[in-house]
Design a protein around this nucleic acid. Structure first.
Length: 371
DNA sequence: AAGGCGGGGCT
DNA sequence: AGCCCAGCCTT
């Protein structure tokens, strides 16, 4: 910051705002959450957009608003419905926190989303970025909304070389935004910075020749747009080998279980699964899975000889490598808490993480081709 | 400050 | 095979 044009007052801030906003007025994308600025809609869209691309979010946002048009209706929903609407979107704690926070707004704030940084930041799942986004977009308040786009764009325009992977760096950019932000239209100013990051000032090969604020960009002037922002990289993911089973009773019911209420994929449903710690022989794996299932569910199980599918799935911090067996439950199951026997229709109405959706799809494909 | 927490689409 | 994405929470 010390060496930036911003502090030396060399930058024409008025002209920068005007160029940025004029571009946004002309070029902004037609997105479903831009039809109006209702705080509830802005809120839902901002939660969905955390670490998630616009194109991915669009259909989820449409379905969400169709199912839960008001905060009151969302607040009244049960958790299964809440998880189902989020199924496949990832980072499921987002929707658990959103549900909790919307209930709080309905109960304690008379259904009005708070409009101050202090109050809105207390809501679960509303961090510095989301607070600023809601306050500026829904309420027109001149608060910074610094996300990955904004840090990338401003690191280039202002030639800021701080490592954007560090949590503390965000404060530098918030300070910059407080100086730059257009007081008469903070909503468009914040959205324009993000839109510019998404459409022009992209992570690799930014389209500088099309950039509306190229004349204000210090990185472009110094040929540094390709080396900014500075970002240290994270280490690679851990591999985990799993064995799963699609188990069916003679009555065509499937055995599923609910994951623990915290941690990875909390409260989502899955097919019974065990982790394998060592690389064992094929038949031994099948035996290990069989023993695990019979002990776990106090029943007798006949697994088919070979696994019918293999599923690889990469998360942000680990990788699942799953071998999946089909089997029949020979005896009555002792149903513990969080374990259910369900029909196909019931199964498909519950929320499953994508790797287990892949298993189900592969299973149904084998049923189809096997007939 | 560092790591957990999804999933998909680029390069 | 990484990297990135309209981040937040816990430790």
């Amino acid at each position: 910051m010390e060496e930036s044009k911003l502090e030396h007052q060399e930058m024409n801030i008025q002209q920068f705002r005007e160029d940025l906003l004029n571009w946004f007025v002309e070029e902004q994308r037609d997105l479903p959450w831009r039809k109006d600025n209702q705080p509830y809609k802005v809120w839902v869209s901002e939660i969905m957009l955390q670490q998630t691309r616009v194109d991915t979010v669009i259909p989820y946002f449409e379905r969400f608003m169709e199912e839960f048009p008001t905060m009151e209706e969302f607040a009244a929903a049960d958790e299964e419905a809440v998880l189902k609407i989020w199924e496949g979107l990832g980072y499921y704690s987002r929707v658990r926190n959103l549900h909790s926070a919307v209930k709080e707004v309905v109960e304690k704030y008379n259904g009005i989303v708070p409009d101050t940084p202090k109050e809105i930041s207390k809501l679960k799942g509303v961090g510095p970025y989301t607070a600023g986004a809601i306050l500026s977009i829904a309420y027109g308040k001149p608060e910074p909304a610094v996300d990955g786009n904004v840090m990338r764009v401003l690191s280039r325009i202002l030639l800021i070389e701080a490592d954007i992977a560090k949590p503390s760096t965000r404060k530098i950019f918030e300070a910059a935004v407080r100086t730059l932000i257009d007081q008469s239209n903070p909503s468009y100013f914040n959205q324009a910075l993000m839109e510019l990051g998404a459409l022009i000032c992209t992570p690799t090969s930014p389209a500088c020749l099309l950039c509306p604020v190229r004349e204000h960009c210090q990185a472009y002037a110094n040929g540094k747009e390709q080396v900014l922002p500075v970002k240290t990289r994270k280490k690679s993911v851990k591999n985990i080998s799993l064995l799963s089973a699609v188990l069916k009773t003679a009555d065509n019911l499937y055995l599923i279980r609910k994951r623990p209420n915290e941690g990875l994929l909390a409260n989502l449903w899955e097919f019974p699964t065990m982790e394998v710690t060592v690389n064992k022989q094929y038949s031994t794996q099948r035996q290990a899975l069989s023993r695990y299932l019979e002990q776990q569910y106090d029943t007798e199980i006949q697994l088919e000889t070979g696994s019918f599918t293999h599923v690889d799935h990469v998360f942000s911090h680990l990788k699942w490598s799953m071998d999946v067996f089909a089997g029949e439950i020979a005896k009555t199951v002792n149903l513990q808490d969080g374990v259910r026997l369900v029909t196909e229709q019931e199964l498909e109405a519950l929320a499953f993480p994508v790797p287990h959706q892949k298993i189900w799809k592969a299973y149904k494909d084998t049923q189809k081709s096997g007939e």
